[in-house]
C-alpha cells in the first residue's frame, strides 16, 4: 500500500466540509443574523446616545461575534458522529490532527468569516469611530480562529454526550477570557490613542500556539469522547 500523502487527506476534508456548507448555505446566515439582532438590542437597552455606544461598541461586537460562533460550534462534529463519518476519519491512514485542522478551517470559513465581514456593519450601528475599525478587524481576525480552535477542543470532549448547549458555554468561558481581554484591550487602547500592538501580538502568539497544539489535543479529546 502506497503511503497516502497527508495533504490529500487535508484537502479532501476541507473540500468536503466546504461543499457540505455550500449545500446548506442558507444556514451560514444564521450566526450573522443572530449577531445583528444582539447588536440591535444594545442601543434599545442603553439608549441611543452616540458617545456611550461608541465607548462599548468594540466590546459588544467582539462578545456578540464570539457568542454567535458559540451557537454554531455544536455543528462542528455532531453531524459527523451521527452519520458515522467521524469514525471513518479516525480510521483513515492520516494524522487525525491534520484532518481535524481541515474541519476547523472549514468551520471558521463558513461561520466566522461571514461574521467578520458583517462586523463593520455592527461597528457602524454602534458608532465605533471609523479610525479604530481596522484594529477591531485585526483583533477579530485573530480572536475568531482562536475561538474556533479552542471551541473545537471543547466541543470534541462533548461529542459522546447527548446534548451540549449550555455545557459548551460553561466549558468554553474560562478559555475565552484571555482572548476577550486582549482583543478588547487592543481596541480600547487604540480608542484612547494608546499603543495597541502588544495585545495584538499576544493574541497572534496565542493563535500560533493554538494552531500547533489544538488540533492534536482535539484529536486526543475525540478519541477519549468516542471511546464508548
Amino acid at each position: 500500500m502506497s503511503a497516502p500523502s497527508a495533504r490529500t487527506g487535508y484537502v479532501t476534508i476541507l473540500r468536503r466540509d466546504l461543499l457540505l456548507a455550500w449545500r446548506r448555505r442558507g444556514e451560514a446566515a444564521f450566526p450573522v443574523l443572530y449577531a445583528l439582532i444582539v447588536a440591535t438590542l444594545f442601543p434599545f437597552a442603553l439608549g441611543p446616545e452616540g458617545a456611550l455606544l461608541a465607548r462599548i461598541a468594540a466590546g459588544v461586537v467582539l462578545v456578540t461575534v464570539l457568542l454567535a460562533m458559540l451557537l454554531a460550534l455544536d455543528g462542528l462534529f455532531r453531524p459527523d458522529v451521527e452519520d458515522g463519518s467521524l469514525e471513518q476519519l479516525l480510521l483513515a491512514p492520516q494524522p487525525l490532527g491534520l484532518l481535524l485542522a481541515a474541519k476547523i478551517l472549514a468551520h471558521w470559513l463558513t461561520t466566522a468569516l461571514p461574521l467578520l465581514l458583517a462586523s463593520p456593519l455592527l461597528a457602524a450601528m454602534l458608532h465605533l469611530p471609523v479610525a479604530v475599525l481596522p484594529v477591531l478587524l485585526v483583533a477579530l481576525a485573530l480572536a475568531t480562529p482562536l475561538m474556533s480552535l479552542l471551541g473545537a477542543l471543547v466541543v470534541a470532549l462533548t461529542v459522546g454526550t447527548r446534548r451540549s448547549g449550555m455545557l459548551l458555554a460553561l466549558m468554553l468561558l474560562p478559555l475565552m477570557v484571555p482572548v476577550v481581554i486582549f482583543a478588547a484591550g487592543a481596541v480600547s487602547a487604540a480608542q484612547q490613542g494608546l499603543p495597541f500592538i502588544a495585545p495584538l501580538a499576544w493574541l497572534g502568539a496565542a493563535l500560533v500556539l493554538a494552531l500547533v497544539l489544538a488540533p492534536a489535543a482535539c484529536a486526543a479529546a475525540l478519541r477519549i469522547a468516542l471511546d464508548a
Binding site: 449545500r23 452519520d83 458515522g84 469514525e87
Partner: peptide, 11 residues
C-alpha cells in the same frame, strides 16, 4: 463498515 454507514446525506 458499521451500522452508521459514514455517508453524507447531502453529498
Amino acid at each position: 463498515l458499521g451500522h452508521q454507514l459514514g455517508l453524507k446525506a447531502d453529498l
